[in-house]
């Protein structure tokens, strides 16, 4: 148990570190790359909705930075 919680903490930390950045102020005229469609948190809402549904019906874990709708009788 302890080991997995430790593991859980290190992965997000590693993600932040792998960006190798501290927060730098970004001006409106420097946001071109951030505005690209492929930089969205969810670039493809249709595909994302489909995958969320498949994963929800096959795995125990669910939840994240989006609201989940209702369940299903997927057995």
């Amino acid at each position: 148990m302890k080991r997995t919680i430790l593991g859980a903490m290190t992965v997000p930390l590693a993600l932040v570190c792998s960006a190798c950045v501290t927060i730098e102020p970004v001006q409106p005229w420097q946001r071109g790359d951030l505005a690209r469609a492929e930089m969205a948190f969810e670039p493809d809402p249709v595909q994302a909705a489909y995958r969320r549904h498949v994963e929800f019906s096959k795995e125990a874990a669910s939840g994240g930075a989006t609201l989940s709708g209702g369940g299903c009788g997927c057995n």
Partner: peptide, 26 residues
């Protein structure tokens, strides 16, 4: 009955990087 909630913050780390962290409860 199911109740779900989430809260998140996204940061523009620099002109090429964004990070979002979130917690959720169900």
């Amino acid at each position: 009955d199911s109740l779900s909630a989430f809260a998140g913050v996204s940061w523009v780390l620099n002109a090429k990087t964004v990070l979002q962290t979130a917690i959720s409860y169900g």
